[in-house]
Amino acid sequence: MVARADASHIGSALSITDIVAVLYSGALRVDPAEPRMPGRDRFILSKGHACVAIYAALAETGFFPRELLKSYGTDQSPLMAHISHKVPGAEFSAGALGHGLSFGTGKALAAARRGFDWRTVVLMSDGEMAEGSNWEAMMFAAHHRLDRLTAIIDYNKLQSLGTVADTLGLEPLAAKLTAFGWTVREVDGHDHAALATVLSPTRWEAGKPQALIAHTTKGKGVGFMENRVEWHYKSPNPEQLAEALAGLAENGDA
């Protein structure tokens, strides 16, 4: 998709692919036959630039035909290069960072006030934690005890121009989130079994919103992309695409 569209952000998408795979293979209560099912879990991709991972998961699980993926990033395609709420199964259009958690907090608040048990799950990037709006949402969600809200932070430790640590360091991240009143867990963001366990519907702690720090590798699965800032921007050429797919096939991930 990315190569065909000559698009960016493949590194960001590969970073969350395992998380998304676990979410859409059972962790989330969703139904491709009824994308707007009232009792569904609400999934929000706040790092909208990584949308190819979601589009692939939605196609794979039957929200729309796989054939549509070929239109990604082309003129007037519904699959624009940031997540779009006009795509079946996508709740929210993002692209500007620091919006998804607040939007999700509103959804979780609506569910809480109306006594619904469905979950709101927001997948965020590490770099976007510098947006102040996220910390506004953190305060609100904790104050209102929104314990059906889960924020997953894709902590691949790289952002646009370099490492997170060299840009605006997040550490001690878990302590910060805990201090903001959230219950916090950390996980290997590429370990499907661990992700499936921690993302199950069971509350971690009554009365507290949940933050999952997922330690990930940007560009995961493609050796020459892993931990390389330039793959936030570059699109693979045909040779690179073949090499990437061959590598994934060898590892049984393609």
Partner: peptide, 26 residues
């Protein structure tokens, strides 16, 4: 009281959160 909230001095969150609630029927 069930439909009143003080978002605090945090207008960005207030606006996005309002959108989130509105997407659920409010």
């Amino acid at each position: 009281p069930d439909r009143f909230f003080n978002a605090g001095v945090a207008e960005q969150n207030m606006a996005s959160m309002a959108a989130g609630m509105a997407s659920e029927g409010y």
